[in-house]
């Protein structure tokens, strides 16, 4: 199915992409605006970037977010891969239906429900056992791992179901133990999916406002929480500058990851 894109289709696509990118472009452009006002272009300036780098609250929050995201993505990668392996390779086991449901539901679970329920768990646990003592990076990370498992599992399961299983069977026939087959055959074959899943879990964690707000403690404000409280007060040029930096980082990351994956796949 190539060519013959009708003018109607091209126009619809153009509109779709304009819709997707207009707000992003506006944020980037106005981050370089010398004026504080959105509608007035007062010349090119980097002053908001300067102000951003001097903003200690944002710097601290960025570090908290990064720490949470690295723990969450790595935890979600390990557990999510196990989930995907179990769902793709074990057709039947006791409690499989519940397992599959629990692993998929967070994909679409409204954030407010996930955040509230985890907070209530942490409060009840602390009352009953004394752990976790207060809330902070650890509790946010646990919440984000639970969310990330679902996304890692979907990505990895798709890959596990699609590649040629005879490779695994051949290794087993030749006497390799199942564990060795997994590490020598399966793991390298699903590596691109693992990378994609890890990145996805990392991004979700860095991006989450609602679940983090519920599960955070007083000393663990994440970057989205700082952005949210300043955005509530209106449009802020510093936030435009921060958004632009995030956009550049994400674009570079996604572009290089997809190049890496394409190189590996062909």
């Amino acid at each position: 199915m190539t060519n013959r894109l009708s003018p109607f289709l091209i126009a619809m696509m153009a509109l779709g992409f304009v819709f997707l990118y207009a707000p992003i472009v506006s944020v980037v452009v106005y981050s370089f605006n010398a004026s504080r006002l959105v509608t007035v272009w007062a010349g090119f300036s980097l002053r908001w970037y300067g102000a951003l780098f001097e903003n200690e609250a944002i710097g601290r929050a960025a570090l908290v977010s990064l720490e949470v995201a690295l723990i969450a993505a790595t935890g979600a990668l390990v557990l999510g891969t196990l989930v995907a392996y179990a769902l793709a390779r074990f057709r039947r086991f006791t409690g499989r239906t519940l397992f599959a449901a629990m692993a998929t539901a967070p994909l679409v679970m409204p954030d407010v429900i996930a955040g509230l329920s985890l907070l209530l768990l942490f409060v009840a646990l602390e009352q009953a056992t004394g752990w976790p003592q207060g809330r902070g990076i650890l509790t946010i990370a646990i919440a984000h791992i639970t969310l990330g498992i679902a996304f890692v599992a979907v990505v990895v399961e798709a890959r596990l179901s699609s590649f040629d299983r005879s490779l695994e069977e051949a290794a087993l026939d030749l006497g390799a133990t199942p564990a060795k087959v997994f590490f020598v055959i399966t793991l390298p074959l699903i590596a691109p999916a693992l990378a994609a899943g890890w990145l996805l879990a990392l991004t979700l964690s860095l991006d989450d406002l609602v679940i983090a707000s519920f599960t955070a403690g007083p000393a663990s404000t994440t970057l989205p929480m700082v952005v949210y409280s300043s955005v509530r007060l209106g449009v802020s040029p510093q936030i435009n500058a921060l958004a632009t930096l995030i956009l550049i980082a994400v674009t570079v990351l996604v572009a290089s990851a997809s190049r890496l994956l394409r190189a590996k796949n062909t």
Partner: peptide
């Protein structure tokens, strides 16, 4: 990738961007 890229960038910031576009001034 052009469709996916906005999804990877901050949801909060993408929502916020509309405030600057849509507000009265």
């Amino acid at each position: 990738m052009l469709v996916i890229l906005p999804f990877w960038t901050s949801f909060l910031i993408r929502v916020y961007a509309w405030i600057g576009l849509l507000k009265e001034n």
